[in-house]
Design a protein around this nucleic acid. Structure first.
Lengths: 222, 222, 222, 222
DNA sequence: TATGAATGAGTATTCATTCAT
DNA sequence: CATGAATGAATACTCATTCAT
């Protein structure tokens, strides 16, 4: 069973690697098998079909990407510090996640709408993204209880915006041939999320959005 | 020539319709031809290959989606009012754009990286998205010159966040079987963009993010 | 009519040119039309179908190739001299004919056996080749009547061998990427036909087949 | 492996059978598969493409045709007798080889000039034909060493003519709907090759070319 | 009569899935 | 269970032919 689990891991990892490079539609069973070091037949011992395999791979990736964001449950530090750590963490993961980001969108078109497997995928993604949002929301709530986030802020909505902005930057970055856009990088993520955080605090002067360096403004395209 | 252009329109529209429903990977030339009311051979009179046709369709869609956002160039109203109109407009387009939103991501995996057509797609998308950001930036600049946006705000960065948040909400909404998440709807878009706008203004009290209705908070899934 | 005939010539010539380069199977109506400077529709005003056009082109070529061999009807010179002139002429045409030689063989497989057009082609080729042989036979007969060809030689058979050898050399030459085989060239043709001629004469010493140059023997590939 | 080789044989044989009847251009993968008793997919397990399959089939056929000509290595008989046996053998193979003879020429036009596969074909044919010529040359050399072929004969050139004549007769015969030309038959081959052989010997009186039967002369079409 | 855009039947090729070993 | 050769349904693309202008 140990070995079986190991194989499943290798298979999913192989599918993700290829899917990230060539796109899911061009990810073929032959290649997955070879990259995973198993035979094509073995793939069907673990997964009923190609669709199923790829859906599991996508869910595996998205979940892993979310889990990569640490809980920052160290209770010895303040909510504000934990949020700062969260921002650092999300920014630090940015480049790696960009690699495989499009596969989530592609997976939706792999399976005919209305089928069981299609629902399985959408439900899975929904759950993961909601969990993601919840995680951020709980940190915001902590910060709010400590007074660094204003009382009147709708935490649910802010958490949703937080995730949306991060995903939007990932989405945008996945189109670029080479990080041409300085705003869609690790630094850009830090700037954006900090802006969101600080817009929810009382302290106006910390605002990360202020023009600090004119040179930076010029560098950023349009 | 009139007729030829008409046909091209019908072909691209047909490709988009099918691509939005089934995904680009499952969008076949036979179906496009039938849906467009032309023969398969005619498809190849206009486009060199399936890849080319689909890429043009995607660029056509994205460009149309951006152009749908009005310039709001009515100079008789203030920058602030124009931004409000922009927010209304983006929110109003949300549901329709969601339908075809995934195809942009899917297109990236239709074409082998490194090919000319792949670059054509990425360059096209890049240009469109930069134009989009520029449009928003110019309205923000107007508002800034009128004093409703603070002087110290990095307009480039804010415009980038603005677009990222919108795209992130579209991305998220494209996963849902039926608008289950109240934050990823027309209303959610309005709330999110308003938050971004108001976080850049001097007037604290307008903040759309304040908890106004407790019921609303409960409705929105964590 | 003058103009029409001119067009037909251009069409056949275009078909031959392309057919010689790419092979008949890869000779398409589009290309023929463009090369001939007419529209595709015009092709069908002159020929019922692609098959018909190509068959006419092949017959046109083969006939022209045969007619290129001069009658050498100058009665002021001896039969022997005429035969020598014939050999020179056939050798001189060799390189040009090689270019289009394969099309005759290819044409046979263009049309389904048993059809009218297939018979039309085969009959046409047969007639042409028989006429070719007859031409040579009549010169041999003249030489025989003058005494330079032995009385006991079967002229029909010798003429057939004569043509077969020439065609065999053409056939062989059409396989070579670049005249690598010194025996399948203008010089080789001269040597081969001279051998055949002299083997039919009484005078042994003229035999072109004798090893005259050792270097030549070494040059010729096994 | 035994089985795989068996399948390859069946595939090539099927391709040749159909190619000989309909021409290579009209030889389709579906038909080959059915005739070989395998699925279409299996064809592609053995050969990369239709072109490759057909080229291998042609080389297989030509090689087999050459190998069919026995070495006549029985050292107990004289070179002269061996040459007579060779002539008998080539004549005996004539009718069967005629069936598939055109495919060699057709193959040249299946593949775009300048491609690797085109060179593969031409090189293969070249090698086979040179081997063929070499075989004949060695028998002539033996006969020469025994004194039945004159010392002054250029064996290379004679061997080349020998092959060319044989090929020329095959070429001619491949155009005929039904062996209408008595000179392009088994008997004609024997007559032609004997003539070539005897023209290289010292003994004039054996000459096969002499008119033996007037009726025969009449039979042979001009 | 000349044109060339539209047509769609015809084909090579791919690749998920199966199953005998 | 693992394997990988065999399978054949599915699909992009070509090109001879037609016909409205």
């Amino acid at each position: 069973m140990e070995e079986a689990e190991n194989r499943k891991q290798r298979i999913l990892a192989a599918a993700l690697r290829i899917g990230g490079q060539r796109g899911l539609a061009a990810t073929h069973m032959d290649e997955i098998a070879e990259a995973a070091g198993v035979s094509k037949g073995t793939l069907y011992n673990f997964y009923k079909s190609r669709e199923q395999l790829l859906v599991e791979a996508v869910l595996f990736f998205v979940e892993a990407a979310v889990e990569e964001i640490p809980e920052v449950s160290d209770e010895s530090i303040s909510g504000e510090q934990r949020l700062q750590a969260l921002i650092e963490s999300m920014a630090g993961s940015f480049d790696r996640i960009v690699e495989n980001f499009p596969i989530a969108t592609q997976a939706g078109s792999l399976t005919p709408p209305g089928t069981e497997i299609h629902s399985h995928l959408l439900n899975g993604l929904n759950e993961i993204f909601l969990g993601y949002r919840k995680k951020i929301r709980s940190l915001l709530a902590l910060a709010q209880s400590e007074g660094s986030v204003r009382e009147d802020v709708d935490l649910n909505a802010l958490a949703a915006i937080w995730v949306a902005t991060y995903n939007g930057l990932l989405y945008r970055a996945s189109f670029e041939e080479s990080g041409a856009d300085s705003l869609c990088t690790e630094a850009g993520v830090k700037q954006a999320l900090s802006w969101l955080y600080e817009s929810a605090t009382e302290i106006e002067t910390k605002n990360a959005f202020k023009n600090r360096a004119k040179s930076h403004t010029k560098d950023s395209k349009v």
